[in-house]
Nucleic acid binder design. Structure first.
Lengths: 190, 190
DNA sequence: TTCATTTCTTGAAGTACTTCAAGTTTTTTA
DNA sequence: TAAAAAACTTGAAGTACTTCAAGAAATGAA
């Protein structure tokens, strides 16, 4: 399972056995129960997480006391608040395990050390963030060009298994409409 | 003016005079008139742009024939469609000069060469993208937690000069409401 | 298995915006 | 400097959603 990270890295750059071993020594293998908070608003985000197993959400508390999901993370995804991690400033976001999860985590100090020791990982992390950023732009595009109903049907056709996997109200907030409205869309009452 | 890029790089990593010269040889200095398209939907985005002077917008045509701004770029910002640039796939986005602009551009081939020659630039580009991604997350947060009016007042207090600099209807679309509504907010009629 | 908790559904009432259409002002171009 | 083009304003009418409240169904814990 730990080697998932190594496999992921190998999709982007070439590393040898020694690199792989060195890399893993910088990470901590952690388990969290369902609903654990990996990051809480106000804290400095001191870890970057690579998800080995399970599913997390990245969310905010909007000013009406409602939790709004900005991102989901599943197997083989990185998740962190990059700004807070990089600049060691308090985060505005929360990261929570939606299921029991298994992750590899790396703190800021180990991360810097790792990059010093194996500089070619800079390329790997650049490419990973580039993909995340691209995904974020696509997401904004969908929010701007599709109606609520279209966003739901689109997501449903792209990720049918995922829709089953997490509570509907989280999907609704990710797609930026209310859970009640989601219910109506699904029932074809809209 | 060309050295703006070098200064920007030096904010993130250490480079010497020889590096600086080598870097600049990989870039092309380009001027564009107001309204020029640097990237058009459907094209493969083959350039990354560093803005020396002027202002651009990154936008889509939504399905109602309206242009919706996702991002602005000003002096010392990088702008590109990272996904299209990286994977050489057709872009869904447009990049347009809002003012007469001056940029440094680098194509995919030169970019890869440059990174091979000066690998420490990987860190620079990683940090730049990290910041852009962070900014994009903050933007989504504002869209989700503030009303249209709040978003306007917030932007107005954060970037008063910028609001003067570009047409109101572009700000309105960036903040995700109609130009008419913006007019009403400004007039205090809402 | 049972109870408690979480999640989902439904309808009625409300609202933060959009759309349209027409006029006015500002900026650009020749 | 005049004419054309682009940008902004205003009010009236419409709508895609939200909010509320209450019950039903599913899931989890003991």
């Amino acid at each position: 399972m730990l080697s998932n990270l190594i496999d992921h890295i190998k999709k982007f750059i070439t590393i040898d056995e020694a690199d792989a071993e060195m890399i893993l020594t910088h990470f901590q293998h952690q388990l969290f129960t369902k609903k654990s908070l990996l990051l809480e608003e106000g804290q400095i985000c001191n870890k970057q997480y690579f998800i080995l197993k399970g599913c997390v959400r990245f969310y905010i508390n909007n000013n009406k006391g409602v939790e709004q999901t900005l991102q989901f993370g599943i197997e083989n995804w990185w998740i962190t608040d990059y700004l807070s991690f990089q600049y060691q400033t308090p985060s505005h976001f929360n990261i929570q395990a939606i299921e029991k999860i298994e992750v590899l985590s790396i703190d800021r100090k180990s991360f810097d050390e790792l990059l010093d020791r194996i500089p070619k990982l800079e390329k790997y992390f650049r490419l990973v963030i580039q993909k995340s950023f691209g995904a974020s732009q696509v997401r904004i595009r969908y929010l701007f060009t599709m109606s609520a109903e279209e966003r739901f049907h689109h997501m449903n056709s792209m990720f049918p298994e995922f829709i089953q996997r997490v509570p509907q109200y989280m999907i609704a907030s990710y797609l930026d409409f209310s859970p009640e409205f989601m219910s109506k869309i699904r029932a074809g009452k809209v």
